[in-house]
Nucleic acid binder design. Structure first.
Lengths: 200, 200
DNA sequence: CGTCTATTTGAATGTACTCAAAAGCGGTGG
DNA sequence: CCACCGCTTTTGAGTACATTCAAATAGACG
C-alpha cells in the first residue's frame, strides 16, 4: 500500500505542490522522503514558545492555532491553520532561535513535518520546490497585508462581520474566545457584539 | 560608462540580489535588461488605487509610502519603503486587477521598475532569481507577522516607542502624521503621546 | 451527574477618537 | 531677506469604543 500512497494522486501535500509547480514522479518521491507524518491530539502543542521549532508543518487533516502570550498572560491568535496549509514559526525554524509563537491543536490533527536541513536541501536541489515556496510566501505576504488593512481600517464589529463572511467554516470549528483574540478584542466584547448584531 | 554601471559591483539591485543568490555576470546583465530606471519627485504617485499596477519597484534612492484610503477618507500607511527595498501592490501586479494601495514618493526617488511579464520570465528561466524572491517573500512574511504581533499585543504608546527604537532614521525622514497612520492611531493622539513621553 | 471551561451579562473604567482652534514650520514670491 | 500662505503639529474638551472585573448561565466531556 505504501507505494500507492506515495504517488502524487493520493498525497495531500503532493497534490498541493502540484497546483503551483509540476513535479515528476521521482521528485514527488524525493520530497515525501523528507517528511514524516505525525498525529496530534486536541490541545497538544506542536510548538511551544521558547523552544526551537524543529519542524515546519503541512496540515493534512485537522485544525491548529498559532498564538503569542503577552506579558499580562493574554493570548493573541496570529493564525488558524486548517487542511492543506502550512503553519510554523519561520524565524525560529530557519534561524534556529527560540520560538515566539505557540502552536496548539484545536482538533485531532495529522501533519507532515520537515526539518530545516531537509527543507534547505530540497530548496537547493529542486527549483520546482523553491518555486512552490516562493508562491506560498508570496501568497502569505498578500494575505497578511490584507489582514493588516482590515485591522487598520475596520472597527471591531466590521472585523467580526468580515470574518464571518470570509471564514464561515471556522466559526463552527473554533472556540469564540480564540476568534476574539484573532480579531484583536476581548471575548466579552465579542460576545456583546454578537448580541448587538443578532438584535438587528 | 554603461558597461561599468551594468556590473554587479555598482548596481544597487544586483548588489542586493547577490546577498541572497549567486549571479553570473551574464545573469546580472540579463536581469538588468528587464528593468527600467525611473525618477519621481516628492509627492508624485508611483501607483494609484483603482489602476492596475504595471510595475514592481526596487528603490535605489529615496523614500516611498504605501497606503490605503478608507471610506471616511482617512489614510492608513501600510509600509514605508527606503533604499534597497521593494514596494508595490503584489495582488494588482501579479493578477492584473485594480490596485487597493496607493504608493507615493515622500522624497525625490530613483527606482528600478519591472513589468509582470519580465518578472515571470526571469522567475521561470533563472532559478537564482526565483530563489531571491523566495527569500524576499519569506522575510516579508516574517516581518509582517512581527508587526501583527506588535499590533495585537502593544498599546499605542508601546507601539510608538518600539517604532522609535526600530526605525530611528525614519523619524527624521517621514512626517509624523504618516507615522501615526502606520501605527494605527490619529495624529492628534500621537502628538499627545509624545508630549506625555517627553515629560517623563 | 458533576466538574470544568466557555459564553454571557452588566457596571465602572480607560484608552483612543472627534472636532475645533491655535501655534509652529517650511517653502515661495515679492 | 522677510512676509505670507498652506500644511503639520499641538492643545484641549467632550465623546465613543473597547476593556476590566465580577458574577451568572450555558455547554462540553468524562
Amino acid at each position: 500500500m505504501a507505494s500507492i500512497e506515495n504517488t502524487s494522486m493520493t498525497n495531500a501535500l503532493l497534490i498541493h505542490i502540484n497546483k503551483f509547480a509540476d513535479l515528476s514522479e521521482e521528485q514527488s518521491e524525493k520530497i515525501l522522503s523528507c517528511f514524516v507524518s505525525k498525529k496530534y491530539q486536541k490541545k497538544e502543542y506542536i510548538l511551544q514558545a521558547g523552544s526551537v521549532s524543529e519542524h515546519e508543518c503541512f496540515i493534512v487533516e485537522g485544525c491548529l492555532r498559532a498564538f503569542v502570550v503577552d506579558y499580562k498572560g493574554n493570548e493573541h491568535t496570529l493564525r488558524f491553520g486548517i487542511e492543506n496549509s502550512w503553519i510554523g514559526d519561520l524565524d525560529s525554524f530557519f534561524k534556529r532561535e527560540p520560538a515566539t509563537y505557540n502552536i496548539q491543536a484545536l482538533e485531532p490533527t495529522t501533519a507532515l513535518m520537515i526539518r530545516v536541513d531537509k527543507m534547505n536541501e530540497l530548496m537547493r536541489t529542486m527549483p520546482e520546490f523553491e518555486q512552490y515556496f516562493r508562491i506560498m510566501f508570496q501568497y502569505g505576504v498578500m494575505s497578511l497585508q490584507k489582514r493588516l488593512v482590515q485591522d487598520l481600517t475596520l472597527s471591531a464589529e466590521e472585523r467580526y462581520t468580515y470574518f464571518t463572511e470570509k471564514y464561515p467554516h471556522l466559526l463552527q470549528r473554533v472556540p469564540q474566545k480564540h476568534i476574539a483574540s484573532y480579531l484583536g478584542m476581548t471575548p466579552e466584547f465579542l460576545s456583546s457584539l454578537r448580541k448587538k448584531i443578532s438584535q438587528k
